[in-house]
């Protein structure tokens, strides 16, 4: 499914410093992509896209810095290769951290674990059927710039956003069997690879 015109599977890195990176890899495989664990800068070479998973954003942020990953992550983003951030991944991409999204995420905005919840969520781009969204000590988007497209909100708070090649959500699509949110990301990745191919051909 998630293959380029040339037919080779999309190579999608999953930042594997801490968090539920294996759950993302499973969903990506389901969509026909080839997931690769990313722990050091060299792992980001030859990727079509990157997932920054759920986990503890403070931990992931510190490990990005100790592994010297920030320049390689910026190069990935600047090359127009898509990035998906879920929960902690949304926070890591926000304006206060890597700055890949013109949003400010509020950490643990929905509360502690006892306030964690599941809800049916209408999400732009996944079709009419609502998505079962799993929110765990989840953030929400407190502020977003004019270029940011809000794909879903819960009780008036934006919880899924897209800006250019970066897609992010406050919930965990990787913890359900429904791959539709990742399918949006795969479509973005296929387009990005085609664009890159055309540029090389020109």
């Amino acid at each position: 499914m998630a293959a380029s015109a040339a037919g080779t599977p999309l190579r999608v890195g999953v930042l594997a410093l801490q968090g539920d990176f294996e759950a993302h890899a499973k969903t990506l495989r389901l969509l026909g992509a080839e997931p690769r664990e990313v722990r050091v800068p060299g792992d980001l070479e030859e990727l079509d896209a990157l997932v920054i998973p759920g986990g503890e954003s403070t931990t992931i942020g510190k490990l990005i810095s100790s592994a010297g990953l920030e320049p390689a992550l910026r190069a990935h983003h600047e090359a127009g290769r898509p990035i998906l951030g879920t929960c902690a991944g949304l926070i890591v991409c926000d304006a206060d951290h890597l700055g890949f999204l013109d949003v400010t995420a509020k950490r643990n905005a929905f509360g502690r674990q006892l306030q964690s919840f599941e809800a049916d969520l209408e999400v732009g781009g996944v079709g009419d059927e609502p998505l079962r969204a799993v929110f765990i000590r989840a953030p929400w988007v407190e502020r977003h710039g004019p270029e940011v497209e809000v794909l879903a909100s819960y009780e008036g708070r934006p919880v899924a956003v897209r800006e250019g090649t970066v897609l992010a959500c406050a919930f965990h699509p990787e913890l359900t069997d429904d791959p539709r949110f990742h399918a949006i990301f795969m479509a973005m990745t296929t387009s990005a690879r085609e664009r890159a191919g055309e540029e090389v051909g020109r």
Partner: peptide, 21 residues
Amino acid sequence: MTERATFRLKTGLAEMLKGGV
């Protein structure tokens, strides 16, 4: 429907702790 304290939410937090200390 909004639900809390499902088994998926309980194990879900542990999923988020994976690879960590």
